[in-house]
């Protein structure tokens, strides 16, 4: 699946987008898997309460299943307007 990062999450991880092969069943499992990979992920995902996630461009919860999802995006709370 494609994993996208925005704002300071993108800056901390260092790329805007990457392809991730994973067997993670939920968003939380994907987060744990990425965090175990490298420090930059662990740093970005350290406080999930400061993050939001979208699955196929719809806001979702961290316990949401990933089955059938093509695009996951992580970002801080939005500040439009």
């Amino acid at each position: 699946m494609d994993v996208l990062y925005f704002a300071w999450v993108r800056e901390r991880i260092g790329v805007p987008k990457e392809r991730v092969e994973t067997d993670a069943v939920t968003v939380a499992e994907l987060v744990a898997e990425l965090s175990a990979r490298e420090d930059r992920y662990a740093a970005a995902f350290a406080d999930l309460s400061a993050l939001r996630v979208a699955l196929d461009q719809e806001l979702a919860e961290f316990d949401a299943p990933l089955a059938g999802v093509r695009e996951v995006a992580f970002f801080p709370p939005m500040t439009g307007g």
Partner: peptide, 14 residues
């Protein structure tokens, strides 16, 4: 519209 787009539309200000 303003309340929702502030917190639910994916924009980030720096």
């Amino acid at each position: 519209l303003m309340d929702y787009l502030k917190s639910r539309a994916p924009f980030w200000k720096k």
